[in-house]
Amino acid sequence: MPGPKELDPSSSPRAMVGSELRHAREAAGMTQPELGAPLFVSGSFIGQLELGTRRMQLEYAIKFDEILDTGGFFVRNCRAATKSKYPDHFADAVEAEAIATAIKEYAPLLIPGLLQTEAYARAVFRGGRPTATEDVIDQLVEARLERTKLLSDPTTPLFWGILDEATLRRQVGDAAVMAEALRNVANLMRRHRVIVQLLPFSAGAHMALEGALKLMSFSDAPPLVYLQSMGSGQLLDDPASVARYELTYDLLGASALSPRESLAQIEQLAEDYDHEAQQQ
């Protein structure tokens, strides 16, 4: 069995704190489950902290300093390690997304963030924050576009999206914005960089009617599920929950159009939006 992944402590504050946590735990002769027990968390949760996929909260930092006798190191570094440009409910998911080997996402209302164009993202943020300053919107768009760089690698991570038909029919921005956004998705599909399936309205009721779903897999850590709702989100690692949502995703894929059929529909809608934009 391969050993744990070697982290580059200079890559981020979280990576540094995670690396030190693993070093201190091993020096104390403790396993991940043994360290997690006094905190009432699983061994896999400790592993995620060590990998930097979970943000270290102050309450955990205090306990680690006590248990591992690290002289306040984790409390001192907790703030830097948890600093993020993203909302608290989403920051852990973004960190996990950045090191995932596979991402499967069901999008019920909006094109997934990793597939968005600048104009589409700007329209999304402006719609959700009608009184925000342009500087605020610019910062949000910049953070969104930074995430899309994950797909600049030709093979990793694998991205498989299931888009509800509503994501293509709901006009975010004007028709030109939608045409560009759908062409971007189609181009990624044609380059074989992503797998996308369209879940048509005709599929009817399904197991994910209540919201968005993201599954993330890793080379050396258990899979995670991220569930998002308005202004909040939840990152789950419980094996039973993960298995349930994996089944949900598989059933969605079985009800969706094939990637080939989905590409044809997406390109046709992009043409329709182009025609509408020319008329306008």
Rank of each mutant, 00 (worst) to 15 (best):
L49N: 09
A100Y: 01
E165F: 04
G233Q: 13
I111G: 15
R190M: 08
A61T: 11
G52E: 07
Y273R: 06
M189Q: 03
G18V: 05
A80F: 03
S152V: 05
K214L: 08
Q57P: 00
L114C: 05
P87Y: 14
E105Q: 15
A96T: 08
D220P: 07
L110H: 05
L247V: 09
L115I: 13
R193I: 05
L199W: 12
R169M: 14
F73E: 11
D274Q: 09
Q228E: 14
P38R: 04
Q57S: 09
R79P: 01
E134Q: 15
P87H: 12
L252A: 09
R244C: 00
I67T: 02
Y245R: 02
S255E: 10
K83P: 00
P108H: 13
H23G: 13
G36K: 11
A27W: 08
F90M: 13
V124M: 06
L163Q: 01
R25F: 05
A80D: 08
G29K: 04
G18M: 03
G18L: 03
P239I: 01
F159K: 00
M207F: 12
R25P: 06
G127H: 04
L114Q: 09
D92W: 06
S11C: 06
T148R: 05
K63G: 01
E165V: 08
S84G: 06
A203K: 09
T155C: 00
D238C: 15
H206P: 13
E97N: 05
Q268M: 11
G18P: 06
D65M: 10
A143E: 00
D250S: 15
L115R: 10
S217Q: 14
E142G: 09
L140I: 07
A81L: 00
E180V: 12
P200I: 13
D237G: 03
L188Q: 04
T101K: 09
Q268E: 15
G18Y: 11
A254D: 03
K104H: 14
L58M: 08
R191A: 14
L115Y: 10
D238A: 13
A107L: 00
P154V: 02
G52V: 05
L188N: 06
D138T: 08
R169F: 02
A81S: 10
Q116D: 01
G253D: 07
R169Y: 07
E6R: 14
S19F: 04
A100V: 05
D174E: 01
D274M: 11
A166D: 02
K63P: 11
P200Y: 13
A181P: 00
E59L: 07
A91D: 02
M30E: 05
R76T: 08
K5P: 02
V17Q: 05
E34D: 00
Q197R: 13
T248P: 01
L158D: 02
G161C: 03
N187R: 07
D88A: 13
E105N: 09
Q116C: 05
S217G: 04
S219G: 08
E246Q: 15
F45E: 04
A221K: 07
